[in-house]
Design a protein around this nucleic acid. Structure first.
Lengths: 191, 191
DNA sequence: CCCATCTTGGAACGATCAGTACAAGATGTG
DNA sequence: CACATCTTGTACTGATCGTTCCAAGATGGG
C-alpha cells in the first residue's frame, strides 16, 4: 500500500492541471482533484502542498507544456507581422482543437476568475501572460514591425488568444474560432 | 420590521447582478449576495427564488441595462463597417471604464465558468451572446458590408469584446484596452 | 531481521455552502 | 381593535468545502 510513491508525480500534476483548466479554481474541489489525479488526499497534500500551491504548480506545468510551442512558432523567420500573429494564433487553435485537453486556456480561465485566486496565483498568471506578450512583441519586431506597431499587434494578438479561449468555452464552432483568428491575422500595420 | 417589502426589488436585483458580475457564479455565495443586496436570506429567497433563478434574473437585468446601449450605438447610420465595430467597442470600453460597476462583463465571466452554471443559465448566456452577434451583423450589413464580411466582422467584434473583459480583469490598463479596441476597429474588409 | 522513514487511505475537523423552517413583527382590511 | 397575510431576521439542516491527523502498511539501510 505504501512505502515509496505509487504514482508518477509529473503525470499526476498534468492531470491536476487539467482539473483546474476544465473547472476553474473555485470549482476544482479537492475531491475533483483526487478523482482526477487518482491520488488520495494524503498523497496530494504530501506531494504538492495545499490547493493554492498545487494550482501554482499546475500553472508552471502549463507553461512548461505550451510556452515552448509558442516560442517555436514565433521563432521565425516570418515574412511579415501578420505572419507572426497567424503563427501565434495557430498554436492556440491547435491546442483548443486537441480533444485530449479541456476547452479554453488555463491562463484565460484563471484570469477571468481573479477574485477567486489568491495574490500569489494572480501574480503568477499575470507574469505568464506578460511573458507571452513580450515574446510576441519581440517576434513582431523581428518580422519588421516598428516599435509601436509591434506593441499594438502583440497586445491585439494576446487579446485574440483570450477571446478564442472564452468563445470555445461558450460552444462556438471551430469554424467560428478559425474565422476569429483569420480576421485577427489580417490586421494591417498602423494607418 | 416587516409587513410590506422594506426594499426596492429592482435596486436589490441590480446589486445582486453586481455580485455575480464581480465574483462569478461560484464565488457569489448567498452570504455575499445578502451582504451585497442588504437583504436577509428570507427576503432574497422569497423575492427571487434560489441562487440559479437569481442568477438568471441578474442576466436579464444586465441585458435590460446594456443591450439598449448597444442597440443605440449600432443603430447607425454608420459610414463603414469599421465605424460599426468602433461604435460597438466604444460602448464596451465605456462600461469597463465605469467605476460604479465591476470590471469585465457579466456575460463573459459567466461564459468562462460554464461548468459551474446549470443548463438553463448556460443557455441564457449563449442566447444573449447570440443576440448581440445578430444585432452586430445587421448593423454591419446596413453599413455596407456584404454578407460574409458582415458575419466575419460581427464574430470578430464579439471576440474583441470578450477579450476586453478578460484583459480588464487581469489588470491591463485602460490605455491597453483602448489599443485593443482601436486595432480591432482598424480591420479591413476581406482580402 | 529490525527499525526509522515514508506513503497511503480514510476518518475527522471546523468552516462554509445552498436552502428551509419558523417565530416575531408589521401591514391593510374589516 | 382583531385578524389574516405578508415580510423579515435568525436558527437550523445536511452537504460539501479545504485541511489535518493518524494508524496501517511498505520500504530500504544498518
Amino acid at each position: 500500500m505504501a512505502g515509496r510513491k505509487q504514482f508518477d508525480v509529473d503525470e499526476a500534476l498534468r492531470r491536476a492541471m487539467h482539473v483546474f483548466w476544465r473547472w476553474g479554481y473555485s470549482e476544482a474541489s479537492i475531491d475533483r482533484l483526487t478523482e482526477g489525479t487518482g491520488l488520495g488526499r494524503g498523497s496530494l497534500y504530501g506531494t504538492f502542498g495545499d490547493k493554492s500551491a498545487l494550482f501554482r504548480k499546475s500553472l508552471e506545468r502549463y507553461a512548461q507544456t505550451y510556452h515552448p510551442l509558442y516560442e517555436q512558432a514565433l521563432s521565425g523567420p516570418h515574412p511579415s507581422p501578420s505572419a507572426v500573429v497567424a503563427a501565434y494564433l495557430e498554436v492556440t487553435l491547435n491546442r483548443i482543437a486537441d480533444p485530449a485537453v479541456p476547452d479554453g486556456c488555463l491562463l484565460t480561465m484563471s484570469a477571468a476568475q481573479f477574485p477567486a485566486i489568491d495574490a500569489e496565483g494572480q501574480a503568477m498568471v499575470r507574469a505568464m501572460i506578460d511573458r507571452v506578450r513580450a515574446v510576441l512583441e519581440r517576434a513582431l519586431r523581428a518580422a519588421g514591425a516598428e516599435e509601436q506597431e509591434a506593441a499594438e499587434l502583440a497586445l491585439s494578438a494576446l487579446a485574440t488568444n483570450k477571446s478564442l479561449a472564452v468563445l470555445s468555452r461558450t460552444g462556438f464552432s471551430s469554424a467560428d474560432l478559425a474565422t476569429v483568428a483569420a480576421v485577427a491575422a489580417r490586421v494591417p500595420g498602423r494607418r
